[in-house]
């Protein structure tokens, strides 16, 4: 590496420094827009005791669900954790801790974490089990709960294109949680479909500025689809 060039040549280098008991913020919604190769590398490393902040936990044999096979995850912070039988088994047996977090609150926790805001008030979840133990405050006659933001030792992100200094562009709804995850890691690693030269991306069209990104690797993606639904005719 030299100067601002953040491109790494192998997955070992991409995830170097990841150790047991770390917190990882992961982009992706279901299996859409997930850093497939980085997850595979985390599995290969065999690190344990991980806390993973991600909207979902993949499926039984794909995405973050793969990390359940060797019990690498201690705790999931997610909004929805269906579609995964092994997850269910570990959760019910008490091996896996789950912090169910409303989807918008989860996105905002990442966004705030990356933006240096330690906590924020939201009406989401007031009067529900989510509010238990949280400070309540009224603004203009409405009740809000205090939610703390999150940051990670690592953030793992999937983007469509990166230039060599880490400016990112996402594609379609594979964007989802990735832009916030990218800001919330002490070390942010991005797996992309294409790496281009500096200057090839239009500065007006960049979704994530390179300042948030530490390492970039070019991946090859399977892009599994959970529910193929087709037009009737």
């Amino acid at each position: 590496m030299s100067g601002f060039n953040k491109v790494v040549s192998n997955y070992q280098e991409a995830m170097a420094g990841l150790t047991d008991d770390m917190t990882i913020i992961a982009g992706g919604f279901g299996l859409c827009g997930i850093p497939e190769g980085l997850i595979t590398e985390i599995k290969r490393l065999g690190v344990k005791g991980l806390t993973i902040v991600s909207n979902n936990c993949g499926t039984d044999n794909f995405g973050l669900g793969m990390l359940l096979e060797d019990k690498q995850i201690k705790k999931m912070v997610s909004s929805y954790v269906g579609e995964n039988a092994e997850f269910e088994r570990q959760y019910l047996s008490g091996e896996l801790e789950v912090d169910l977090t409303p989807q918008g609150t989860l996105a905002e926790k990442m966004r705030a974490g990356g933006a240096g805001i330690p906590a924020f008030y939201t009406a989401t979840g007031f009067g529900t089990p989510v509010a238990e133990g949280k400070e309540v405050r009224q603004f203009n006659g409405r009740n809000y709960i205090l939610e703390e933001s999150v940051t990670g030792d690592f953030a793992i992100v999937k983007a469509w294109k990166a230039d060599k200094i880490g400016n990112l562009v996402y594609r379609d709804t594979a964007m989802n949680f990735n832009p916030m995850a990218a800001t919330a890691g002490k070390i942010t690693v991005v797996e992309v479909e294409e790496i281009v030269e500096v200057g090839e991306l239009d500065p007006n069209q960049i979704h994530t500025p390179g300042i948030y990104v530490n390492r970039i690797i070019k991946g090859s993606f399977e892009k599994r689809i959970e529910k193929i639904t087709l037009a009737k005719n």
Binding site: G30, L31, G104, R171, A174, E226, T229
Partner: peptide, 30 residues
Amino acid sequence: ADMINAGKETVTAALGASIFSSAESFAMIR
């Protein structure tokens, strides 16, 4: 595979659609 709805079904974008992050999405909801 990059184009799905909140039910994780494959969809298309309508004419005039916009695509944004989940934080932006919940900003407009909240």
